[in-house]
Simulated scan of single mutants.
Amino acid sequence: MRRSLMRITFRQLQVFRTVCETRSYSRAAEEMALTQPAVSLQIRQLEELVGQPLFEYLGKKLYLTDAAEALQRASTDIFGRLDNLDMQLSDLRGSMQGQLNLAVESSAKYITPHLFAAFRREHPEVSLQLLVVNHAQAVKRLSVSRDDLLIMSQVPTDMDLEFLPFLDNPIIAVAPPEHPLSHAAKLSLQDLTAWPLLVREPGSGTRKAGEEYLRQKRAHFAQTIQVASLDALCEGVIAGLGVALLPRHAVHLELASGLLRELPVAELPLYRSWCLVHPRGKRLSPVAQAFFTFIREERSQISALAMRFAGTPIRPDQG
């Protein structure tokens, strides 16, 4: 190893990683409570040790050089190993400590905090960093192993992944209570096609699952309305813009309050499974491994949560 690399400091790597994330010297300085000249100096010293430029401007945008991308991968590994060491030392002291970096598809964001709360009752010193993404973003993050674990449905079959299905994700048809279809005793998917269908943005897992199922059932909607977020889509249905296919977990409060009504469609619910996913061969941190084990072994707690989100009362013998 070149001796110059041995002189790289953790502080320089922290500054470098912040510049990579923000793509701006000034924003990196603001985040780290430094002056911009101090950030520039740290990067300049780091470039001298590496022996190559790390950033270049094209127009007004800051881009990473090949050397910066290599250093970014190395720094992620270095800080990841330090995090693991911290967790292992905590484990040796008899307590689980550390942070779980978890990415979830947007329709899983409603149930995930409850899963983590159940886990944290056993490990109260563990913290959570939760990132909400759509399906396409989740796949991209898996390809570069950005997170400890991901929660997603429709696990990609063309990637080498380890995944654990742990909870049904029922997708249902919903409409506001005053909608004509809300009073029907029985419906088919074809009955829905006379109304506009509200859909998520391209890249959404719920949209992908719904579109594939509608094609399979040959149910064609003449009009669709695209909405950028699940919450906005839900509000659009409440406002009477159309009907939608949504995960039951995501609209359980609206169903319970009467703002939405589940339509009695014979071909629904469409069942998919929520899965806990990571690249095969990835070395999980002690915290991530503990969470994976918890999800695998605590099926009774997870089933109780699922019943609560389905609006089903939990009997004492199920709690």
Rank of each mutant, 00 (worst) to 15 (best):
S75M: 09
R11S: 09
L230T: 06
L245D: 00
P124L: 05
A33L: 11
M32T: 02
S204T: 05
R17G: 05
Y110R: 12
Q216S: 13
Q289A: 15
L233N: 02
T22L: 05
Q12P: 02
G236T: 05
F294M: 04
E262S: 11
R23M: 07
L85C: 03
S26D: 03
L189A: 07
C234T: 15
V133G: 00
R261L: 08
T157Y: 05
V251H: 03
A68D: 00
S4A: 14
Q216V: 03
D191T: 06
A38M: 06
A232H: 13
T224L: 07
E267N: 08
G281L: 08
R215A: 12
F309T: 00
E298R: 15
Q154T: 07
A29Y: 01
A108I: 03
A290K: 04
L128M: 07
T157M: 08
F221S: 04
V139D: 01
I225C: 04
L131K: 11
F294E: 05
V251I: 14
G98Q: 01
A103I: 02
R23G: 02
P37S: 02
S188G: 13
Q216G: 09
L13P: 06
T35K: 10
G94H: 05
L245P: 00
A29S: 03
T312I: 15
I302L: 12
A138C: 13
V251W: 03
D83W: 01
Q137G: 10
G98A: 03
F163E: 09
D317K: 09
F221C: 04
S106A: 12
R308A: 12
E297M: 06
E31I: 05
A175E: 05
I295R: 00
P202F: 06
G94T: 04
M1L: 10
A103T: 11
P53Y: 01
Y25N: 00
W274L: 14
L54N: 00
V144T: 14
H135L: 08
S127G: 10
A175V: 07
S153Q: 09
A306Y: 02
L167I: 09
A38G: 04
L245Q: 02
L62P: 00
G210N: 05
R207M: 10
D160Q: 13
H278K: 12
L241D: 09
H114K: 11
A222D: 13
A184E: 15
S229M: 07
P316V: 06
H114P: 00
P37L: 03
M87R: 06
A70E: 15
V199P: 00
S4N: 11
V265F: 05
Q301S: 11
L130H: 01
T65W: 00
F163S: 15
A74Q: 11
E31H: 12
Q137K: 12
A136K: 11
G258Y: 10
Q318K: 11
